[in-house]
Design a binder for these strands. Sequence first.
DNA 1: TAAGCGTGGTA
DNA 2: TTACCAAGCTT
Length: 393
Amino acid sequence: MPDRRAMLLCMDPSPSAPAGASADMLRPFSPPEQHIPRLRRALLDWFAVNQRRLPWRVNYTPYEVWVSEVMLQQTQMERGVDYFNRWMARFPDIAALAAADEEAVLRQWEGLGYYSRARHLLAAARKIVAEHGGVFPSDLEAIRALPGVGPYTAGAIASIAFGEKLPCVDANVERVIARVFDVDSPVKQDPAAGVVRRWALRLVPEGRAREHNQAMMELGALICRKKPRCEVCPLAEFCISRHLGIAEQRPVPGKRAVIKPVQAVTGVLRRAGLVFVQKRPPSGVWGNLWEFPGGRVEPGESPEAAVVREFMEETAFAVRVAETFGIIRHGYTTYRLTLHCFGLDLAAAGQTPAAQLTAATECRWVRPADLEALAMPAAHRKLADRLFAGKNQ
DNA sequence: TAAGCGTGGTA
DNA sequence: TTACCAAGCTT
C-alpha cells in the first residue's frame, strides 16, 4: 500500500516546473527509483489488457521472434504484420529459409527497405543449419554471432524467446526511460545511453522478461509516443519528466542527418517486346536488387542527356530517348530523389545487344510480366507498375 | 565514431 | 510539401 502522505509531499511543484502546468500534474508522484516493484506491476497489468494481438505473439518460437525482430527494425509495426505472415507462409522454418534462393528471399522483402536485413536472415539461417544442427541457439553469445543480429536483437531473442533476464533497449524503451527517469542529454550517446541501459536492466522483473520487454516497447509505441499521452499512461505516477512538465522535451534528440536532394534518371530500354534490367552489386544501396539502369544527373546536364550517358557508361548501349514517363519522387536514407523516367530504344537499328556491365553483376532482357518475379527498389517498382500494371501477359 | 543503409506513415 | 519518424546493424 503506497504511503499517501509521502505521495502528497512529493506533489510540491518543483522550482523548474513551468507555471500554469496542467491539472494532470496534480496527480500523485512517486519517484521511480523508489517504487520499481509497483512500476513493474503497473506496466505488466497495462500490457496484459492493452497489448495488440500480433502474429508473433502466439507461439514465441525462436524463429518467429527472430524474424519479427529483424523485420521490425526501423519499421513500423503495422507494416510488419503482412510481411511477417507472408514470410512465414513462404519460409515456415529455419530449414525452409536456409534452402531458399536469395532471389526469393529478397522478393519477399521487397518494399521493406534495408535489404541487408534479408540477406543476413538467409545467411544466418544457413549458419544455424551448418553450425547448430538447424536448431536456433539459446546462448546469448551464439545469438549475437549470427549475421544481422546486434545488441538489441540478441537481447530481444534471448529474453522474448528464451526468457533470459535481459532488457531490450530500442528507440521506444529509450524514450520511455528518458522520460520516466528524466535523462537530460542525447539518449543515443554516452553518458545517457549507459544510463538508459542500466535502468532498463534494473527494471526487468525476475521470470517476466518476455512480457516486461514487450510491455516497455508497446508502451512506447502506443502511449509514450513522440507526443505523449500521459493522461492514460500507467507509469504517469512514476514519471519524473511528466512531474516536471517536460515530458515532451524528452528524449533529448541527437543531431539529425542532412537530407540531400538528388536529381536522377532511369530508362526502360525496349527491344522486341522485352525490357532490359540489371542486378545491382551485393554491397551498397539496394544490394542484389534488379533495376532499370540510370544514375545521377550531372550539374548543368539535361535528364535526357544524363540517361543516354548513364546507359553508355553502365551497359555500353547507345540509346535514344523515345518517350518521357515523368517524375517519381522517392526518399531513401538521407537522400530525396527526383527520378526522371524515360522510355528508350537502341540507337542503331539491328544492333545486336551485348551489354558490358560496369554497375551490375548480371543483366536480362525480360518480358514486362516477368518483372513481377524480380526484387526491385521501390522507385523502380513504382515505375514498372505505372508502365505495365494490368497490361501483363 | 559516424556514415550508410529504405520505406511509407503522419503531422 | 516538407520534416520527422519507426522493435538497428555494419563497416
